[in-house]
Design a protein around this nucleic acid. Structure first.
Lengths: 228, 228
DNA sequence: CAGAATAAAATAGTAATACTATCGTTAAAC
DNA sequence: GTTTAACGATAGTATTACTATTTTATTCTG
């Protein structure tokens, strides 16, 4: 998988940055270290000043790339969803059987990110943890409708719509394909969070994965033989 | 329902406040107006200074009741979950049939809060909207394990465990009762949010409610006749 | 190779936030 | 009639989230 990614650039909405961080060495260091720092201290404690200090640069230089830390978070998470979308398309493209296709999709979207799919300067394992812990904060804001119109959530929405279509392909009569799709993606993040911080609120542990649970949830919902 | 609630006090963890806001008139005004103000401007823009101005008091007086706005949010949401738990117990207590019981539970926990169940100075309709928009922020923080140990999330956890038991009663062989329970509660908040801000990501609208969707989800999962 | 343009570092400064501390007034409680 | 609790008012601090300007270093172009 590594080689395939080497020459691909994830297309993030250009309004999310002032200057493309991919275009310079400093920009890449900003992105790379913001992931490490947000993971370490959490989004609330993270500031551009701390990031500047960390990379031997300063606040004002970071502001040349990102308007504020909210936009940086949107950039990072958009990148992550774009990266996942790429894996989703790659994995499911050639599968003709709808059930098999959806099964693969759920696997790609809910399995833990593994270390070996490393993408240049971005640590996807840590980034996936940031998504679990911080993604909600990027849309649970007063400005959500305005930012949605600006297209800041496009990739995430596309991802859910893609899986939604796969759900419809399995059972065209199912009444809630989009809700189920959004539940699977959001539920996956939530189950990973619970596993780490509220283990009594989940059945996921060393043996049961969020993927197991969500796979069961999806295919039970789509089965036509049930009495639900 | 109104009369029943009139003399009940929701038991919120005492560590969440410096001084019980229920014990004074100012305290009640702080709680009442914090709900209005957080709903109006969102949690990020909300400050104790603005709240003080709003109630014709000042910042320092608010600090006499709540350490900071994070604790205030925990207080408000704990109160909300406690209020919902009370309704849950009241509604489901006498139901002998497990399916009927779970059905009632899902209805109570996922239906929109109606105006007529008004509780003194607290506007539950607005409070439920605050929970939809802000609750995640109360636990998606670095200090979550510490605060969990302090018991700040007890009521929410109890609510999920209660519904988890009802799920087990319907189908003791189901492998994911706690995950399903947490998914229903969290998924309900999420579907309401999507309905308002990302309608393309949900099937819930004027005719289909989050309750419809989650009811279907739950009972399909628990049905033993399915091919999932 | 000179000069222009670009990028980054350094410094300074501002308004707002998130508090903490102190003091004076009022009003009720003993 | 005095203690005490409650509240309001004011002041002050460290940090945050920026904006602006100036200086220095690098690179690109003719």
């Amino acid at each position: 998988m590594k080689h395939l990614f080497q020459n691909i650039k994830i297309g993030v909405n250009k309004k999310l940055f002032v200057k493309d961080p991919d275009s310079t060495d400093l920009g890449k260091r900003i992105v790379e270290n913001s992931i490490l720092l947000i993971h370490e201290m959490g989004f609330e404690q993270f500031t551009f000043k701390k990031l500047g200090a960390r990379i031997g640069s300063n606040e004002s230089s970071v502001y040349r790339y990102f308007e504020n830390k909210h936009k940086l978070l949107l950039y990072l998470t958009s990148w992550y969803w774009g990266w996942l979308e790429y894996q989703l398309v790659l994995t499911t493209n050639g599968i003709p059987n709808p059930e098999d296709k959806l099964k693969s999709a759920i696997e790609v979207l809910t399995q833990p990110v593994s270390i070996d799919t490393s993408f240049t300067h971005i640590n996807e394992v840590l980034l996936s943890k940031i998504v679990i812990n911080e993604y909600s904060k990027s849309y649970l804001i007063k400005e959500v409708d305005k930012e949605n119109k600006e297209g800041y959530f496009e990739i995430y929405k596309r991802l859910i719509l893609r899986m939604g279509e796969m759900i419809i392909a399995v059972n065209p009569d199912y009444a809630y394909p989009h809700s189920l799709s959004s539940t699977i993606l959001e539920g996956s993040l939530h189950q990973y969070f619970l596993q780490e911080h509220f283990p009594s609120l989940t059945d996921c542990d060393q043996h049961i994965t969020p993927t197991d649970y969500l796979m069961d949830l999806a295919f039970h919902s789509l089965s036509t033989g049930g009495n639900g």
